[in-house]
Design a protein around this nucleic acid. Structure first.
Length: 260
DNA sequence: ATGCCTTGTCGCACAAGA
């Protein structure tokens, strides 16, 4: 099965682009971020017409995540545990039954954290602590589990075309990168890096200053897998061609193919 | 050094993104 993640930057603005990509890429599961829609206004019908089951966790104007799946979505969980006062819609999790068992996946939109010096950066770090705690709980189940999404973290210098431009940015702070590594040190695998060592592998290009044309990108959309999920990985990819389409998102889809 | 674009909200500009 093919599981993809994509920050679409607005489901209404991206509707035709998203449908076109789904028809071409044919993911079994798609994790969408930044839907920027409340649940009741999400354009469900065109996705359902393509054969997808759909679960959303939205809010007005900003953020918002959604899951699409050709198989029924089971045990849907909205919101990241650990802070009942957090009203930002940034996490949704569910599972699907396959011929070989059960695969569970979390779709995340990790806080940006900029600008530094405001309450936004500690919110990002606290959110990452909650993600680490939740991952620890899920990993203890010793079943195939994936965390896919827009992490808003540049893990290494090689993950930015111009790493020095990001030194004062929340995406590349030592604290952000350390907490990302904490997830890996718990035993999760970062799939794209383990599938390819190709240089200039990015998932985001700013709309401004011709970043796409200059390939001035960063790699911030990631797929992390539990050991049990890592064992199932057949391959992965980045659909960077979507960035060259009309009316693109500034992010592109990233996917993993599982023997499940 | 700043803005460069884009989206959504709602108003005819602004916040937020990264």
């Amino acid at each position: 099965m093919k599981i993809a993640t994509w920050n679409i930057n607005g489901v209404k603005a991206r509707l035709e682009t998203a449908l076109q990509w789904l028809k071409e890429a044919q993911p079994d599961v798609a994790c969408l971020q930044e839907i920027k829609s409340v649940d009741e206004n999400f354009p469900r019908q065109p996705f359902e017409d393509l054969g997808y089951n759909l679960e959303t966790h939205g809010q007005k104007g900003f953020n918002g995540v959604a899951l699409l799946s050709k198989q029924p979505l089971e045990d849907v969980q909205r919101g990241l545990p650990g802070d009942d006062s957090d009203e930002q819609a940034r996490y949704i999790e569910a599972g699907v039954s396959t011929e070989t068992g059960y695969v569970r996946f979390g779709c995340l939109y990790l806080p940006n954290g900029n600008p530094l010096g405001t309450e936004k950066f500690p919110y990002k770090l606290a959110w990452m602590d909650r993600l680490i705690a939740h991952a620890k709980s899920r990993l203890s189940e010793e079943t195939p589990f994936l965390l896919l999404g827009d992490y808003n973290v540049i893990p290494e210098r090689a993950d930015a075309a111009k790493p020095d431009d990001w030194l004062e940015d929340a995406l590349f702070q030592p604290e952000s990168r350390q907490k990302f590594r904490n997830l890996l040190n718990m035993g999760m695998s970062e799939i794209v890096r383990s599938c390819t060592e190709a240089p200039e592998t990015y998932t985001f290009w700013d709309y401004q200053a011709g970043a796409w044309q200059k390939n001035n990108g960063i790699r911030i959309d990631h797929i992390l897998t539990s050991c049990e999920a890592t064992d199932l990985v057949n391959g992965c990819g980045i659909d960077s061609f979507v960035r060259g389409w009309e009316k693109p998102s500034d992010h592109v889809p990233v996917w993993v193919d599982l023997a499940a």
